[in-house]
Design a protein around this nucleic acid. Structure first.
Lengths: 255, 255
DNA sequence: CCACCCAGGATTCTACAGAATCCAGTGGCG
DNA sequence: CGCCACTGGATTCTGTAGAATCCTGGGTGG
């Protein structure tokens, strides 16, 4: 049975299956294909991914560690509800940490990196007409790069890893919002975001911690407001109320 | 083979073994029995806990999610080094989040709870002579209760769960510090801590967010300074330099 | 209404394959 | 002659699969 599987296929993803499954499931949650409250059945997932149930289970444990699913003893995993309230809560935490990071990064970032990213942001704003799809993609990538630069330069590796974790949870809302919104308000938001990014970069360039923290705070809150507005205006709420019938009582979460 | 094991022991914790192992390992890390850099071997742990290696693997994945161990692909788990730098980093993150929490908790906490905890703190300070051991224990419990009260009242469940996670990591330093310090500077710190706690409670009672955040920040930093001082002054550094020659050979048995 | 039973699924156990490390023996070089 | 790099096998550990065991929830009959 194992001989049937080609050796090369085993070699190439040995030790990576759990991670691959984690990423696939994350993507599905973020794309809304797996809705909040949905019961994740080990065996189904195993068949779908073409592996046995053990790595699936381990992937679910990892996801529970990240906070994407809840693990109920002897009953399996359910996708954690992403309520508007939960989104707000995550944004608040992220705001606190991003502000801390940007304060600490002040004066530590290589000015050349700042200039480079500043140039790119300006270029993005200037050239956003011809290829709208690409522009959105580029905007995401720039946002990610700026935040990574700050996290990486804040001199606190633990803080950086926490921000990375939050970014994963964050993408859930961002991508869901983009999907709902399409190109409706997206451009306005891209432009707004670019302005916020420039303000952050400027504050960093001048070494003004207080200002950097302030504009970062505004940036996170503006993003949160935009996403929440789009999602509320959209067709669905991304929350699943049907698991509220009192049975999944909080055995203390296994993480 | 399985018939030898008594059925009752199997039945009583089925579905909880992973959790039990996680907690045991956490306790051992915190008590210093498992030192930073130490290699955790699946099979040994399985034998020690009387289970197979699957739940042990899953427990290690959970611990990696918390951040207590590092999972190296194909090489297993090692207890994450607790360097002075890492401790400082965690403290910085915790400070940011505790300040955020206390700001949000301002005006939301039941005044009766505040009065009760305030009374207990004063009682602790007054009565700290007769039973020194008990006093330290009580001080820990009070600290924990105050922070839990704030986290639980900040109106942000996600923030509360993040703080809970940090508290777990935190205990590593705190308990290590207590162990080193014994009763040397402990009483001074207990008294100091009590004053800080009272300041926090007072600020909360008055609904002064800015002040609450300020004293909370000072409280966290003072604790960090105390622990770092004790650990530096103590006999060992709580980091394991002996595996620094790049090999990480797991020859030393894990006990 | 309560006790019992059954199906579905979660958890754990056992066995085995792949990968990394370790160690001794060998040969080259100063 | 002694020391170091390299190589081959042996060992140990991790990762995966399939089977066995156990738990939960719902249905059924008294």
């Amino acid at each position: 049975m194992r001989a049937i599987r080609s050796k090369s296929s085993l070699r190439c993803d040995h030790g990576q299956r759990r991670q691959r499954i984690v990423e696939s499931l994350l993507a599905e949650v973020f794309l809304g294909r797996l809705k909040a409250g949905q019961h994740l059945v080990t065996q189904e997932l195993a068949e779908r991914f073409g592996v046995s149930h053990t790595p699936v289970r381990e992937a679910l444990i990892s996801l529970a560690g990240i906070g994407v699913v809840d693990l109920l003893p002897n009953r399996g995993a359910v996708v954690r509800s992403i309520t508007p309230r939960g989104a707000r809560e995550i944004c608040q935490v992220r705001r606190a940490l991003e502000c801390e990071a940007v304060r600490r990064a002040c004066g530590r970032i290589d000015p050349a990196d700042l200039r480079a990213i500043s140039t790119e942001i300006r270029g993005l704003v200037a050239a956003r007409r011809p290829f709208p799809g690409r522009v959105v993609e580029k905007a995401r990538s720039l946002d990610s790069r700026l935040h990574d630069l700050i996290a990486g330069s804040c001199g606190n590796a633990f803080l950086a890893s926490e921000l990375e974790r939050l970014k994963i949870l964050f993408r859930a809302f961002r991508d869901a919002a983009w999907e709902h919104d399409g190109a409706l308000n997206g451009f306005a938001r891209v432009a707004e975001e670019a302005r916020e990014h420039l303000a952050i970069v400027d504050a960093l360039s001048e070494g003004d911690r207080r200002q950097a923290s302030r504009v970062m705070s505004r940036h996170i809150l503006a993003g949160a407001r935009y996403w929440s507005r789009v999602l509320r205006g959209g067709a669905r709420t991304s929350a699943a109320p049907e698991n509220g019938h009192g049975k999944l009582n909080g055995r203390n979460p296994s993480r």
